[in-house]
């Protein structure tokens, strides 16, 4: 799923590890509990990293999908 209602979008295209995760963390801090962050990345490593980030921080990864060479993530702030 590459579309979903979200409250904020983070463009992490062209960034390599660990920047997509660091910027995701920062973007989430601007959101209120329950709000949704969309992240678009091009780093293939971000697939596993985003799952690990969600698991460890408790912010659920609601959806993730590949769209061409881009990876789209939706995280819900805990």
């Amino acid at each position: 799923m590459t579309t979903m209602n979200h409250d904020k979008e983070l463009d992490a295209r062209g960034l390599s590890c660990p920047l997509p995760i660091l910027k995701t963390k920062k973007a989430l801090s601007d959101l209120a509990s329950g709000q949704v962050l969309k992240v678009v990345a091009t780093d293939p490593g971000s697939i596993k990293d985003m799952q690990a980030f969600a698991n460890q921080t408790g912010n659920p990864l609601v959806s993730q999908a590949e769209q061409g060479k881009e990876y789209v993530f939706f995280l819900r702030k805990k």
Partner: peptide
């Protein structure tokens, strides 16, 4: 630096 910043992002 990479591991430190990432660990901090994980809390």
């Amino acid at each position: 630096f990479i591991l430190a910043t990432t660990a901090a992002a994980l809390g």
